[in-house]
Design a protein around this nucleic acid. Sequence first.
DNA 1: CCTAGCCGACCGATCGTTCGATCGTCTAGG
DNA 2: CCTAGACGATCGAACGATCGGTCGGCTAGG
Lengths: 214, 214
Amino acid sequence: MAVNPTQTRIRNAAIRLFAKKGFHGVGIRELAQAAKVSPASLYHYIGSKEELLADIMWESLERLLSAAMLATTDVADPREKLGRLVTLHVVAHAVQSKETAVVDNELRSLAPKLRKRVIDKRDAYEQLWAETIEQGAEAGLFRSDHDGLARRALLEMCSGVARWYSTKGEIKLDTLASEFTDIALRSLGTGEAPPQPDMDRCRTIVKYTWGTKV
Amino acid sequence: MAVNPTQTRIRNAAIRLFAKKGFHGVGIRELAQAAKVSPASLYHYIGSKEELLADIMWESLERLLSAAMLATTDVADPREKLGRLVTLHVVAHAVQSKETAVVDNELRSLAPKLRKRVIDKRDAYEQLWAETIEQGAEAGLFRSDHDGLARRALLEMCSGVARWYSTKGEIKLDTLASEFTDIALRSLGTGEAPPQPDMDRCRTIVKYTWGTKV
DNA sequence: CCTAGCCGACCGATCGTTCGATCGTCTAGG
DNA sequence: CCTAGACGATCGAACGATCGGTCGGCTAGG
């Protein structure tokens, strides 16, 4: 999980370049130069270019999933649960926009074997959303979403943050999160004013999961 | 605009392959084979691989923009206007998922010169959304969106359709469009039940713009 | 004869990857 | 304390393959 400084440099360079140019748009030599190693040395740290991509994607999803589970276990109210899922998802895509963009865009660059591991993780994560929405529907708090249409719409909306949000822009992270939570809950809601989730708890989890950001 | 049958084959093959593997993931030999010409013959129809991509993206946006303008001119009610924008955007991303996916993902593969033309088109299109939302806000029908946050959220949500919707799935196109319109209007709305836009008019425009689909 | 369409052969460049060798560091045996 | 050797890290050079693109020439219809 990237403890070695050289490993970390390679990992970070790969995330930055893959996000900017796409997996196939980055050559090994360019990657090596950005990580300040020779192309040959690169292969002491990675199995192959593709494995490097798969590792990055899987670990990114692993962090997102564990953060989401941490935030939703023992939460009874589906509205609170969904609000936290949205907040974490949006904040993750805002502060880790590079690696989340890679996760969202580069699944196609993985051969079936490596792809499966990543897809399984992603499905496990999206399952959290599906369960939460279903619970809300059963409780009469959300409109039912038996096609998963609303879930997909909301996930795409929240993931899109990585494509346009800039931490240097005028929009504060808190504004972003609460606005998106609002939109999400009102999309699913039955009309009542949606409650805001426990922001402090989410902030703590974000800090714990992704480090010093936020 | 692709009247020649060989041009059309090349265009369609490029859209399909670029959407599936990404611009840098497709070689001209693979593209030529899919279009049933030799790699050399390819260059009787395209200036370069990159120009081919730029043309595809620009034309796709051109169609979307003209369809959107066609659907919104002389429409006074901002809610009706936005409903039609959402419907057209969603339907376009559903039935032309390949080329819209290319538009959404491959901007980074274009050198600045070619990129500008495409970005200008995209901005002109998004401007339509911005104006409509602003009109709605001034009329007191929408919550104001001075950061463009809601606009971006909705656009990402609607564009995401190209990533998951399948015309072979169980969700009907009408259901998709009306559900998304509903979500969009309730995201912006002040609480009243959102009106459904003129679906027949939208259907006509889709047919006129993208041909026999729908 | 001209031209549009088409293609085999080839261009230099770059692709992902491997190999063998050279470093400095650590450890075990005498 | 010295030394032999194992070890991880590093890299220059090169591998065959493929990259985007070009060129000269062939063919067929007007």
